[in-house]
């Protein structure tokens, strides 16, 4: 199968070829990059939504329920669910489909599980590329679910136009989120598991915190949901639509587009450099050697980096 045939398949909505295309892009093969080159001009239509929050907060359940609501509104949906790769084995168990079982029969929903794969290049870059593929495939809304724990996840959220932060009562989630700086990137706050005690307190707490308006003029809504009963998803879908309208009418969409383009470009440059410097197998030993020297304080990281990059130029 040629890359051109794959790209055509994606654009025509062939699910099998879409799945294959996502594998190539995820594996960052030269063919994957070629494919992306063909698909990129066809992307940019979808509304991209990040759903983040701690493990077990109900992100997958909420994503499933939200997708039902979006489908009722006639929208096609792409979902990327990211789960951590084990740092010890490079394996992963990806279980988000468990909560989205009944979406499987709907051919206008395409769901893909993705492991973080502790890569040299950024996770956010890989996810942005996968979002681009689903976007080019014509999905109206592309949802990315990530566990909002670290910097990587914050980065992923940043690649989406709208970020939904899911918090749950009684977990100290709000405090954690504030510490991690995730609160600042949330465009919509959802208190999920509102059937559990403490939901009202958390809602009140969050609303008080958000009295401080954000500069761009978007008023962050604080909503309640019981994802396991599909409660609160109509309101969430409304908020997502409002957010989209706000982005369009305020000009923020354009600004954000340019910002994202800059961000992605810099990230791509970074990983292209890394790939060239330490990408091939001899590069790995070169990297390891430099790691040793930096660890033993023989050389500082900046000089070591300069040296590795210098070698690229010489080759």
């Amino acid at each position: 199968m040629t890359v051109d045939e794959l790209a055509e398949g994606v654009l025509r909505g062939d699910r099998r070829l879409l799945a294959r295309a996502m594998t190539l892009v995820e594996n960052r093969t030269p063919r994957g990059r070629h494919l992306l080159r063909l698909l990129y001009p066809h992307s940019g239509r979808a509304h991209t939504v990040g759903v983040t929050g701690s493990a077990g907060s109900g992100k997958s359940t909420l994503t499933g329920a939200l997708t039902h609501e979006l489908r009722r509104r006639g929208k096609t949906v792409g979902i990327i669910a990211v789960d951590p790769t084990s740092p010890f084995t490079s394996g992963a168990i990806l279980g988000d489909r468990i909560r989205m079982q009944d979406l499987t029969g709907d051919h206008d929903v395409f769901m893909r599980s993705v492991a973080t794969r502790g890569s040299l290049g950024g996770l956010s870059e890989a996810v942005a590329d996968l979002m681009c593929v689903l976007d080019a495939a014509g999905k109206d809304v592309v949802i990315v679910e990530t566990v909002g724990a670290g910097q990587d996840e914050v980065e992923v959220a940043r690649t989406a136009q709208t970020t939904v932060l899911v918090l749950t009562p009684g977990t100290g989630d709000d405090i954690q989120a504030m510490k991690a700086g995730i609160m600042e990137i949330a465009d919509i706050l959802v208190v999920n598991k509102a059937d559990l005690p403490g939901a009202d307190t958390l809602l009140g707490h969050l609303r008080a915190l958000l009295m401080l308006n954000r500069a761009e003029g978007w008023q962050v809504p604080v909503q309640r949901a019981i994802a396991s009963r599909e409660e609160g998803v109509v309101e969430l879908a409304d908020a997502i639509e409002q957010r989209r309208r706000f982005l369009e009418t305020s000009g923020a969409l354009e600004t954000a587009r340019r910002e994202r383009a800059r961000h992605q470009l810099l990230a791509a440059m970074r990983s292209a450099l890394i790939r060239r410097a330490v990408g091939e197998s001899e590069g790995v030993s070169r990297l390891e050697e430099a790691v040793e020297r930096v660890a033993s304080r023989e050389i500082d990281p900046h000089t070591a980096a300069e040296e590795l990059i210098e070698q690229v130029r010489e080759r």
Binding site: T85, S86, T89, S90, G91, A92, I93, L94, G95, R97, I98, Q101, S113, A115
Partner: peptide
Amino acid sequence: ARALRDSGMEVIYTG
């Protein structure tokens, strides 16, 4: 699923 994960594979578990 766990054994496969522990040997470095990505396992999609659907329930």
